[in-house]
Amino acid sequence: MSLTFTLGPSVTPDLHDGILDLWTDVTNTGGAVGFVAPVTREAIRPEPVKHLAAMADGRMRLLTGRDAAGQLAATAFFGFNTHRLKTYWVWLYTVMVHPRHQGRGYGRDLMAAATDAARTFGGVEAIRLTCRGGLGLERFYASCGYKEVGRVPGAIRVAPDDDRDDVFMLLPLS
C-alpha cells in the first residue's frame, strides 16, 4: 500500500500536531531534520510554527503523505526564493518519512511526489536541498536523480568533536 500525497493541505490543529509528532519521532530515531536526538516536542515546536507561518505568507508549500489509515506519514516543504534572480528554483526542506513506514519505498515515493509537485509551480526549473553528511543521505538523494553540487566540510556540528558536511544537491526538472 502506498501513501496518498496532497500538495497544500488545509492547515488544521490535527495537521500541526501531526507534523510536530512526525518531526519528533523522525529526530528521535536518528533522522537528520535539524535536531539531534533525544529531543522533545516542545524543543521542536518553534520550527513547524515557522514553516506554517511561511506557508501563510506564500513563501512555502507543504506536501503531505498519508498512510492507509489516514495518518500523517511523510512531509516535504517547498521554500520559494524571493530574490528575482533565483525564482526559477525551489528549496526542498524537512523531508521526512515516519520511522514506522521506513524501508517500504515511501521515501522514494515522497521524492517522486515532490518532483511532480514542483513541476506544477510556474517557472520552476530545479529543486535544491541540503543534507547532513555522514549518514548516506546523499546516496539516497542521488538515487532519486539529485546531483551533489557542493559541500561545506564540517558545517554542521551535531555534538562536540562531531562535525558533519553540509551537502548541497540539485535536481533539474527538465
Rank of each mutant, 00 (worst) to 15 (best):
L52M: 06
G154D: 12
R132F: 11
R59M: 02
L135K: 12
V149L: 10
G70W: 07
P48A: 03
T82P: 08
M60I: 02
A155M: 09
V90E: 01
Q71N: 14
L52V: 00
E125K: 13
D116V: 11
C144G: 08
F77L: 07
E125Y: 10
F140I: 09
E148H: 10
P48D: 01
Y93H: 15
R84P: 11
A118Y: 00
T94F: 11
R100N: 15
Y141G: 04
G150Q: 06
L52A: 00
K147N: 15
G79F: 00
A68H: 11
G70T: 08
T64I: 10
A159P: 07
A54N: 04
Q71D: 14
D116W: 07
R157N: 12
Y88E: 13
R59Q: 02
E42G: 10
R100F: 11
P160A: 14
G70K: 05
I127R: 03
A112N: 09
T87W: 05
M55H: 06
A54P: 01
V124G: 01
L62R: 00
L52I: 01
R108C: 07
L52S: 00
N81P: 04
A117G: 05
R61G: 01
T75D: 01
G107T: 11
V152H: 14
A118S: 04
R151D: 07
